[in-house]
């Protein structure tokens, strides 16, 4: 039984812990958006929800053992250094490796050869979330501006008090 239990835990929780974190954060944000009475607290919930989505996307682009999606662009310089002192201990293997690939195809010197996609994490979710973060800040600013106008006109940010004031104004008019 314990083997079965640990199997289920590893399959449902440990292998997918990034999704668990995203879903739990999303639930916290959604709960705040639905039940909180204060408009600022609703906006805080919206921000938590947004963070959950950002974490979800970024974690979808993770590869085990991969590095950031930025190529090594000093390869040409290290190549020349390695070729310069061929007797160097650590540089010779790298230099020989690069020379082979350099002779096989006539490519520009700055180009990095044989890029393996498994070595770099997925750049696409990073790009999408990069713009989403900035746009999220801008939309949060708009929301705060609307909240400020509501406070100016009604003197409160509590939802039920605003509704009561609106109903009272309707009955008067």
């Amino acid at each position: 039984m314990s083997v079965m239990g640990s199997f289920i835990i590893s399959q449902y929780v440990l292998d997918h812990f990034n999704f668990w974190v995203a879903v739990i954060l999303m639930m916290i944000g959604l709960y705040a958006m639905i039940t909180k009475n204060n408009l600022i607290k609703k906006l805080i919930g919206m921000s938590i929800f947004q963070t959950a989505i950002i974490l979800f996307y970024v974690s979808a682009g993770v590869k085990e053992g991969a590095t950031i999606p930025i190529l090594e662009h000093h390869a040409a310089e290290t190549e020349q250094v390695a070729a310069g002192d061929a007797g160097a201990e650590h540089g010779s293997v790298v230099g020989a490796d690069h020379d082979v690939s350099k002779s096989s195809e006539k490519a520009p010197a700055h180009e990095v050869h044989e890029i393996n996609p498994d070595d770099y994490s997925n750049p696409l979710p990073h790009v999408l979330m990069l713009t989403a973060i900035v746009v999220g800040v801008a939309t949060l600013g708009v929301a705060l501006a609307v909240a400020q106008v509501i406070y100016k006109n009604y003197g409160t940010l509590e939802e039920d008090e605003i509704l009561a004031k609106i109903k009272a104004a309707e009955n008067d008019g």
Partner: peptide, 24 residues
């Protein structure tokens, strides 16, 4: 998401297309 041809293309071809090391 990681094995889609789009992201594979970005990783493999960015350097040849534009010479920019930062794929993002």
């Amino acid at each position: 998401a990681n094995s889609s041809p789009v992201s594979q293309y970005y990783i493999e071809q960015t350097m040849t297309d534009s010479g920019v090391p930062n794929m993002v």
